[in-house]
Amino acid sequence: MLHTINKSPFETTTFETCIRFLISADPILLIEDGVYAVQAGNKFSSSIETILKTNPVYALQPDLSARGITAITDGVQCIDYDGFVGLVEEHQVNSWF
């Protein structure tokens, strides 16, 4: 199951709610304002690092670029829309917003 999150974790509880239902090894993809979660050195960095021990975390590069986010928490993988489609090939999708 691929979980996508499109909300800034500073704005809503969507990020923390999604994480609560996460099953080990299932990937998370941050899109739109969701990508603010992976900016290095922010309030959610330690949470991202904990998640990375059990689950892969991806962020949509065009959304990072659009928002001027260049420093990313270590271990987060940046992908483009092609990579998004690749994850959808592998998993059913649970879109959180």
Partner: peptide, 19 residues
């Protein structure tokens, strides 16, 4: 909202990948 734009970009990418 960006939802429509993301949906469109996703659709284009899926078609480009042969889906």
């Amino acid at each position: 909202h960006q939802a429509s734009d993301t949906a469109f970009k996703f659709a284009e990418a899926a078609i480009a990948k042969g889906h």
